[in-house]
Each structure stands twice: as structure tokens, then as C-alpha cells.
Design a protein around this nucleic acid. Structure first.
Lengths: 226, 226
DNA sequence: GAAATTTTTTAGCCAATTTTAAGAATTCAC
DNA sequence: GTGAATTCTTAAAATTGGCTAAAAAATTTC
């Protein structure tokens, strides 16, 4: 799940970005309206949700919202507005926003609203599994045959991505975008290295095949069970 | 947690009532505005939240809201409005509602919003424990193996948060928000310092592992008791 | 208002994690 | 089979993030 955050105050932007990343979202930040609109339109398919500050230098949040809505009716958009700006809230909804959050907001509130809007897309599932491997997002644990396997953050994120897409090919470029960064060097071999880490930690010793199938020239896939 | 639901359509009212009762709320239903306002005002102290349908026979939801607000500024009020009634939503907020939910809504969405507004209200468990550690919110005491351990306020708050979420990861950003104030400073190392304080006070001398597990890049976790 | 306690900041250290790089192995097309 | 492309594996370098101690700042207590 990739979120575009358009927010000019660096401290707030970082706070939100860090928090959401800890929750497993990928977050890109634009620090002004022009850049925000540009990023949104250029990668319209990439983003699952747009978080828009109301007050922005240059192009305002409303204009960004309008611009995006012209191209895409579906993308969930949430506004961040000042506490008592009731009119702003109305206006935002009229312009096509799906929800708004009044500042100062608690992170939990924001997360609740994001989850509501992403529900159909993301599902709220917090555990995934393949055969004897279970991953749990709440506890941030991976259990295999009843024993915990220690994974690092990146290993965890990669496994989560593969399991979320169990049965489907995960293309290298997609993995780079979702697990690493959208701007990450595509020629890198980190993926290979991390796939290798996962295999070493999770493949059954003596098994002839890995639980992660390599699809040459394309990417990787964890097969459906059975 | 007692909720007053003012809704004239019996089927919807029952659906909401049943659902909320399953979640552990006590729910009273008024099937028109007049009755709703009356019940609300007579038992103002009893209710923790008001769910108000917009369209009501007789006295409208807005009028109920206004009437309640005259007596009580604090009571959280959520409106249920028709899907595209943007103006209604605005109007509701101006009249003093805290939030609104557009119909048709999902039960989860409603629950999420109710929980946000009820956060930090009473009626919760007041003791938590992990192995030999017991924390009591009423007496504000921590007891380990029968002897009281002196904790400062912040130490206590942090331990409380970790224990409330026993078994789950507590992400750094959430800890900062919940235990310290909403505070956009993510560069601080207070958390580390306080985790260290707790460990020094509560870890068994000679133990190989702390009772608080560090999850690098994510946060901390107190494991479920074995 | 001085002393004690609590909270927060700072900074160096260290270890775990992440990334890079490069040679080995495998696969595929011809 | 041969060669090119891709992936695997390993090791080493770079980076990050958490730990700790100590000091500074804020708050409470007497």
C-alpha cells in the first residue's frame, strides 16, 4: 500500500511518514502542491491513497485534489485541515475528498480513517501463511512449525509482500517499488540477496525446491498451498 | 460504555444495536427525535456517545443535537447522514457534532469512528500483568514478586502502554504519541532511555533476555506469557 | 529557593542490518 | 555445446538504529 503525502511542514511530514511506514505502508512525501500534483499524476496507478494538507505553498490542497479527481475518480483522498475550519471541510468534500481529519489529530485516528478507506483494497488481514509458515503483522512475528524465526525489517517486509500476493508473480520492479523505495535503483541486486536470506532462513533443510519460486526474467512467486 | 441511538427505521436500528452489543456496548434506542432528546437529557450522565440519524420524524437530528449541546459540550455526537448530503455534513459539524458517517456505511467504519471518540474513556481493565510483574492503574503501583517497584510517571505510562498491548508490536511512533504527547519530534531518543530505565528496574538480574523485546526499526514488544 | 527527583537531550559506541560488489552457477536461445 | 543473460552466493563495506552514560533542563518537594 503506497501513500502520497503532500505536506509542507517537514516535521509533521516526517512524523506521519515514519508512523505509516512502521505500519507497513510505503510513503512518498511532496512538500508543496505543485510537486504533489505532479507526483500524483505521474504515478497515478502507484498510489493507493492521497493525504493532502489543506494549507500548502503555491498550489493549494484543493487544487491538487481537483487535479487528481479529473484523472482519477477512485483514489481515496483525505484532507488534513485546521481544527475549526468547518467550511474547509465542507469544501473539501464537495471537491471530491473522501474524508478529512482535523488537526491536531492522533495518529490512531488517522490510521483508523486510512484503514476504512483502504479496507476494500487492503483487507484488514493481519496474518498470512504458506504451508508451515505463518506471518503475523500485529506481533511482527514469523512462526514456522511452531517456532519463531527471527527476521529483520526488510526480510519481514519482503516476505509480507510475497505472501500478500501468494500465487501471483511478484515482478522485480514491483518488489523494488513496494518493499524498497519507488526511486530505488532498479539495477540493484538487493532483491536477490534478500530472497536468498529468506530461503536460508525458511526453506526446509534438504528440500529440493525453495518455497519461493524464481521466474526467470520476471520475478518471484510463492505458490498457492496444496 | 452506553450509547444512545436515535434512529426511526427499526431494521437499521436493530442492526446497529445488535452489532454494538456484540462489541460490548450497552445500547438504548429512541425511534424518534422527541424521545431521543428526552432520553438524552434525562440521562445525560449515563451516555458516553450519541448516534443520531439525520432524518427523523418530528424533531430532526440537528435539533436533538442542538438541544443536547446546550446542556453538555463534551458528549461525543456522531451523525448518520445520506450519502451525498455534503451540506448536511457541514451543517452537522457546525451544530456541534463531532463526526458524521455517510450511509450506507460499513459496521467496521462506524465502530472505528466510535472507538476514536471514546478513546481514553473509563470502564477499562485496571490491572495488567506479565509473568511476575503486576501493574495496577487504580493504585498506580507496580508489584514484582510481591514487592513494590517504584516507577516514575513516565516509566509507569510506558509500561502500561506496553502491557496493554502485550504480545503486539508497539511501534515507536505510537509510543511517542501515546506515552508522550503528540509530538512531531521523531528524532528523540527518550524512548530508548525509558526502555532502558524499565529494563534496569524490572529485568531479573542475570537474565539473558529482557522482558521487553526490541524489534529493530520498528519498536518494542512484551511477549505473551508463555 | 535549595535540594531532590524526574524528564529530556546529547553523543559516542557498538552491533545488527542493509547494501554493494564480484565471481560462481544456472538457465535459455541458438 | 556455446555464449549471453540472469540469478545465486558470499564476503566485505557502509549505514542505521538502539544502547548507555552522563549532563542539562524541568519539575516537584520540603
Amino acid at each position: 500500500m503506497r501513500i502520497l503525502l503532500v505536506e509542507d511542514e517537514t516535521s509533521i511530514a516526517n512524523f506521519i511518514k515514519d508512523g505509516l511506514e512502521e505500519e507497513g505502508f510505503a510513503v512518498d512525501v511532496a512538500d508543496n502542491g505543485k510537486k504533489g500534483l505532479q507526483m500524483a499524476l505521474e504515478n497515478l496507478e502507484e498510489y493507493d491513497l492521497l493525504l493532502l494538507d489543506w494549507m500548502l505553498p503555491g498550489i493549494s490542497g484543493i487544487e491538487v485534489c481537483r487535479g487528481v479527481r479529473k484523472q482519477n475518480q477512485q483514489l481515496p483522498i483525505i484532507f488534513l485541515t485546521a481544527k475549526d475550519a468547518v467550511d474547509d471541510a465542507v469544501f473539501a468534500l464537495e471537491t471530491g475528498a473522501n474524508d478529512f481529519i482535523r488537526k491536531p489529530f492522533s495518529f490512531e485516528e488517522m490510521l483508523a480513517r486510512i484503514r476504512v478507506l483502504l479496507r476494500n483494497k487492503a483487507g484488514e488481514q493481519t496474518t498470512f501463511g504458506y504451508k508451515n509458515i505463518q506471518i503475523n503483522l500485529d506481533t511482527h512475528r514469523v512462526v514456522q512449525n511452531g517456532t519463531t524465526v527471527e527476521l529483520t525489517q526488510k526480510e519481514f517486509a519482503l516476505l509480507e509482500y510475497l505472501l500478500r500476493n501468494k500465487g501471483k508473480v511478484c515482478r522485480r520492479t514491483r518488489i523494488i517499488e513496494k518493499v524498497w523505495d519507488i526511486n530505488f535503483d532498479h539495477s540493484t541486486a538487493v532483491i536477490d540477496v534478500y530472497i536468498n536470506f529468506l530461503r536460508r532462513k525458511l526453506d526446509q533443510p534438504g528440500a529440493t525446491e525453495s518455497f519461493i519460486t524464481t521466474i526467470r526474467g520476471v520475478g518471484y512467486r510463492i505458490n498457492d498451498d496444496a
